[in-house]
Structures are given as C-alpha cells and as structure tokens.
Amino acid sequence: MMCLDCRNLVPGWIDDELGPVERVEFAAHLEGCRECADFARRERDFARGLRDRLPRPILPALERERILSDLRSVAGGRGRSFRLVRGGALALAACIVLVAGLAFSQARDWTRAYRMDHAAHAGASDGLEIRSASAMEVAAWLTRATGTPMHVPTMPDARLLGARTVRLRGREVGLAVYESGGRRLSLFLGGGQELFPSRGLAPDQLWTRRGTPYSVVAWIHQGHFHVAVSDLPVRRLQELARQCQKPAT
C-alpha cells in the first residue's frame, strides 16, 4: 500500500468503516511508516475532539410541539385519504386528478392541500381548537394563533362551529368551520399568493373549481384570501361565498 492510499483510508480507520482486508493492509502500512502513523493519529485525535465538542442542540419544547403538530396534520390528513382510496374509491381519486389536470393551466393543483385537509376532518367534529358560534371570538382566537389579523365572515345560511389553524405548504393559515344544511364547509383564511394563485382575479370575483366530492370556491375580499371547500352543491357554495362578501350588519 502506498502512502497516498493509506491516507485516503484514514477516515475509514477512524470511524471503523474499513473492510477486513483494508484494515489489515492499513495496519501493516502504519507499522512500517512513521509519517503515516503520525498522520493517522492526528486525524483520529481531531475527529474525536470534533465529536466530543460538537454541540447537539435538542429542539426547544415549543418548537418541538409545532413541528410535531405539522407532522400529525400531514400524516393524519393523508392517512384518512389513503384509507378512502383503499376502501374502493380509487376511481374517484383518479377522476379528481384528471379533472384537476384539465382544469388548471398550472402544473400543480393548488386546491389539493385544501381538499385533503377538508376530507380529513369533514366527517368528524374533532380537530377544532376553538368551538364558538361567535365570529368575533373566533377571529380573535385565529389572530392570536396565527399572528395575522383575521376576519371571520358571517353567513345567514351557515352556522359557525369553530376554528383551528392549519399548515399548508409551509404556511400557517386560519380555518373557520361552518355547517350548512347538515354539511360542513371549511373556509381557509389568510393564505397568500403562493397558496392561492389569484392572477387575473378581480376583487370579490369568485373562482370556482367544481369537484367530486368536494368543490372549491376562492375569492379575495378586502385584500384577504378566502378558500371555501365543501361537498355542498357548487351553486350553494357560491351563494354562501357571496354572503361572506357582504358587509357585516
């Protein structure tokens, strides 16, 4: 073994990663080469010192909770969706993908994250972090939770159940949940351009994506982004969206 070959193997020797043959050849070379032996020893001391002194900070409790919450929301939402697919709705999912592909000029279906989150919670009353029918109370809670001023609209034909926060594509947004005619409506609040491609959309103009089972209606009202998801008929969903745009009385 040449000195250059030996020195290239030094990290493997330090980290106990050499194969049996390499290890024997390496040791034999060190026996007869003082320079390489010194080199290897210094490298080993450096690596040991590095490992001993290198800080390994652990997550602060609050940050850990936030990240775990992200993890649970991801796994929870997707898990329910996958069970749905396994339950025999594969054709339905394929249809959604096909419709999405045709409906959008954008490469990505931006409504997917909204629909999946809605699907994960539509059939249950759990998941709400605040339960209240008061739009003001819910708005105050969402504002505190997201750090962004939130306006929670009222709709004469829908009953506010409560709210929670949700992380979509790395952004924290508010989610107000309503019930209308026995069906749930998720209204996502506070997203930005990256969550809602609004190019060419006039203020208060409704953007509609008809889907099965969930349709999406989106709009910008007074500079705020709104995305509504529900299995209500599209016309009904649009009516409710119009009610949201009316000034509060």
Binding site: L50, D52, R53, L54, P55
Partner: peptide, 21 residues
C-alpha cells in the same frame, strides 16, 4: 493536515466549531 487539530478544541467554544462547519 496541520499538527494541532486536537489543541484547537481546547481553545474554541462548541458554537464556534459549529459555525466553522
């Protein structure tokens, strides 16, 4: 390699080592 790899660890804080990495 220089000859003082192990010595520098006695002179520097862990955070400084991490910054260097």
């Amino acid at each position: 390699p220089t000859e003082d790899g192990d010595v520098v660890f006695e002179l520097l804080e862990g955070s400084e080592i991490l910054e260097a990495i």
